[in-house]
Protein backbone atom coordinates (compact mmCIF):
# COMPACT_ATOMS: atom_id res chain seq x y z
CA UNK A 1 0.00 0.00 0.00
CA UNK A 2 1.76 3.15 -1.24
CA UNK A 3 -0.53 5.59 0.60
CA UNK A 4 -1.60 5.69 4.25
CA UNK A 5 -5.00 6.94 5.37
CA UNK A 6 -3.22 10.05 6.63
CA UNK A 7 -1.81 10.62 3.15
CA UNK A 8 -5.30 10.37 1.66
CA UNK A 9 -6.64 12.87 4.18
CA UNK A 10 -3.81 15.27 3.49
CA UNK A 11 -4.26 15.07 -0.30
CA UNK A 12 -8.01 15.50 0.04
CA UNK A 13 -7.52 18.61 2.15
CA UNK A 14 -5.03 20.07 -0.35
CA UNK A 15 -7.59 19.45 -3.12
CA UNK A 16 -10.41 20.84 -0.93
CA UNK A 17 -12.35 17.61 -1.03
CA UNK A 18 -14.37 16.28 1.85
CA UNK A 19 -14.37 12.48 2.04
CA UNK A 20 -16.39 10.06 4.13
CA UNK A 21 -14.56 7.36 6.09
CA UNK A 22 -15.62 4.79 3.50
CA UNK A 23 -14.37 6.96 0.64
CA UNK A 24 -11.00 7.43 2.35
CA UNK A 25 -10.58 3.68 2.68
CA UNK A 26 -11.63 3.07 -0.92
CA UNK A 27 -9.36 5.77 -2.34
CA UNK A 28 -6.44 4.54 -0.25
CA UNK A 29 -6.59 1.21 -2.07
CA UNK A 30 -7.45 2.52 -5.52
CA UNK A 31 -4.93 5.36 -5.56
CA UNK A 32 -2.21 3.05 -4.23
CA UNK A 33 -2.93 0.60 -7.07
CA UNK A 34 -2.65 3.36 -9.65
CA UNK A 35 0.53 4.78 -8.10
CA UNK A 36 2.10 1.30 -8.03
CA UNK A 37 1.22 0.95 -11.71
CA UNK A 38 2.57 4.33 -12.79
CA UNK A 39 5.80 3.71 -10.83
CA UNK A 40 6.90 1.72 -13.93
CA UNK A 41 8.32 4.94 -15.30
CA UNK A 42 11.05 4.81 -12.64
CA UNK A 43 12.66 1.96 -14.66
CA UNK A 44 13.67 4.40 -17.38
CA UNK A 45 16.93 6.34 -17.42
CA UNK A 46 15.70 9.88 -18.03
CA UNK A 47 18.83 11.79 -17.04
CA UNK A 48 19.42 13.37 -20.45
CA UNK A 49 15.79 13.76 -21.52
CA UNK A 50 14.13 17.17 -21.63
CA UNK A 51 10.50 17.38 -20.49
CA UNK A 52 7.62 17.92 -22.97
CA UNK A 53 4.69 20.00 -21.78
CA UNK A 54 2.80 20.42 -25.05
CA UNK A 55 2.32 18.44 -28.24
CA UNK A 56 3.05 21.28 -30.62
CA UNK A 57 5.44 23.87 -29.24
CA UNK A 58 4.43 27.50 -29.63
CA UNK A 59 6.00 30.38 -27.76
CA UNK A 60 4.74 33.78 -26.71
CA UNK A 61 1.53 33.99 -28.69
CA UNK A 62 0.77 37.71 -28.66
CA UNK A 63 -2.02 39.87 -29.97
CA UNK A 64 -2.19 43.58 -30.61
CA UNK A 65 -3.04 45.56 -27.51
CA UNK A 66 -6.40 46.78 -28.73
CA UNK A 67 -9.44 47.12 -26.49
CA UNK A 68 -12.41 45.03 -27.56
CA UNK A 69 -15.91 44.55 -26.22
CA UNK A 70 -16.11 41.86 -23.57
CA UNK A 71 -19.08 39.92 -22.22
CA UNK A 72 -21.85 41.96 -20.68
CA UNK A 73 -22.06 42.12 -16.91
CA UNK A 74 -25.41 40.34 -16.89
CA UNK A 75 -23.95 37.47 -18.93
CA UNK A 76 -20.95 37.20 -16.63
CA UNK A 77 -23.14 37.09 -13.53
CA UNK A 78 -25.94 34.99 -15.00
CA UNK A 79 -24.72 31.67 -13.58
CA UNK A 80 -23.56 32.98 -10.21
CA UNK A 81 -25.12 31.16 -7.26
CA UNK A 82 -25.14 34.46 -5.35
CA UNK A 83 -24.44 38.03 -6.40
CA UNK A 84 -25.04 41.58 -5.28
CA UNK A 85 -24.22 45.04 -6.58
CA UNK A 86 -22.93 43.62 -9.87
CA UNK A 87 -20.42 41.40 -8.10
CA UNK A 88 -20.08 37.75 -7.15
CA UNK A 89 -21.03 37.42 -3.52
CA UNK A 90 -19.24 34.98 -1.21
CA UNK A 91 -18.94 34.34 2.50
CA UNK A 92 -16.59 36.51 4.55
CA UNK A 93 -13.01 35.32 4.17
CA UNK A 94 -11.63 37.32 7.10
CA UNK A 95 -13.21 37.62 10.55
CA UNK A 96 -15.32 40.71 11.00
Amino acid sequence: MTLTLDDVEKIAHLARLQLTAAEKKQYQGQLSDVLDYVAQISELDLADIAPTTHAVVQHNVMRDDVAEPSMTLSDVLFNAPDQAANQFKIQAVLDE
Binding site: L14, A15, L46, T52
Partner: peptide
Protein backbone atom coordinates in the same frame (compact mmCIF):
# COMPACT_ATOMS: atom_id res chain seq x y z
CA UNK B 1 -8.04 15.34 -8.66
CA UNK B 2 -6.34 13.54 -5.78
CA UNK B 3 -3.94 11.65 -8.04
CA UNK B 4 -2.94 14.91 -9.72
CA UNK B 5 -2.68 16.78 -6.44
CA UNK B 6 -0.36 14.06 -5.15
CA UNK B 7 1.77 13.99 -8.34
CA UNK B 8 2.24 17.76 -8.13
CA UNK B 9 2.76 18.00 -4.38
CA UNK B 10 6.03 18.99 -2.75
CA UNK B 11 8.38 16.01 -2.45
CA UNK B 12 6.67 14.00 -5.21
CA UNK B 13 6.71 16.43 -8.13
CA UNK B 14 10.07 15.34 -9.54
CA UNK B 15 9.47 11.61 -9.08
CA UNK B 16 6.01 11.65 -10.63
CA UNK B 17 5.00 14.66 -12.73
CA UNK B 18 8.55 15.67 -13.67
CA UNK B 19 9.46 12.16 -14.83
CA UNK B 20 6.16 11.77 -16.68
CA UNK B 21 6.93 14.87 -18.77
CA UNK B 22 10.26 13.32 -19.75
CA UNK B 23 8.57 10.05 -20.68
CA UNK B 24 6.26 12.14 -22.85
CA UNK B 25 9.34 13.31 -24.77
CA UNK B 26 10.30 9.68 -25.42
Amino acid sequence: IMLGTYALSAGYYDAYYGRALKVRSL
